[in-house]
């Protein structure tokens, strides 16, 4: 990826993603943190597009931005007395150490390794190929994911359903 557009796009999106991720850590107010997290998700979706993964990018927007963040907002709103403070526990220092170590190690390894990449260019179209793969090669995981989603949905409903009330 050597054209100017890709390079500019990568750096901009990387800055957006990491910047808002850092802001999520630092900001105190939980609602604002979720809003920034959404920005971060959108940045990741943009990065997917630079990697010519259009289907995954759109799915990222649909699921992470449209669904999971809304769920989080709901959870924050439905727990009003829990406080909206996004503060750290006493794990702060070990957390920083561990995370720093992790970042350092992975970065070092990825820089150190010879990835022997073959430049193959981006994909022409991913959606149909992914669809075929899902329903052909990966049909069992696909079905399992469906079952998992169903189980998760039922579980979530059962968990939050107030005891002693019935749907009319």
């Amino acid at each position: 990826m050597e054209d100017t557009g890709s390079i500019v796009a990568f750096w901009l999106l990387a800055a957006l993603t990491l910047g808002s991720a850092l802001a999520v850590v630092l900001i105190r107010d939980l609602i604002r943190a979720v809003v920034l997290l959404i920005t971060s998700f959108l940045g990741v979706a943009g990065l997917y597009i630079t990697l010519s993964a259009d289907f995954v990018a759109v799915v990222q927007v649909l699921i992470y931005v449209g669904a999971i963040s809304v769920l989080m907002l709901f959870a924050i709103m439905l727990t009003p007395r829990a406080g909206r403070n996004n503060a750290e526990t006493f794990f702060r220092i070990p957390g920083i150490l561990l995370a720093g170590l992790m970042a350092f190690t992975i970065s070092l390894v990825s820089l150190d390794t010879d990835w022997a990449v073959v430049e193959r260019g981006g994909f022409e179209e991913t959606a149909s190929a992914i669809g075929e793969a899902l329903l052909d090669k990966y049909v069992l995981p696909f079905e399992l994911a469906a079952v998992l989603l169903l189980v998760a949905m039922l579980g979530a409903i059962l968990l939050v359903h107030p005891e002693g009330t019935d749907e009319e």
């Binding site: 439905l78 009003p80 007395r81 939050v160 359903h161 107030p162 009330t165 749907e167």
Partner: peptide, 8 residues
Amino acid sequence: MSMKTEPF
């Protein structure tokens, strides 16, 4: 919605 919330 059957989700329980704080009365307000």
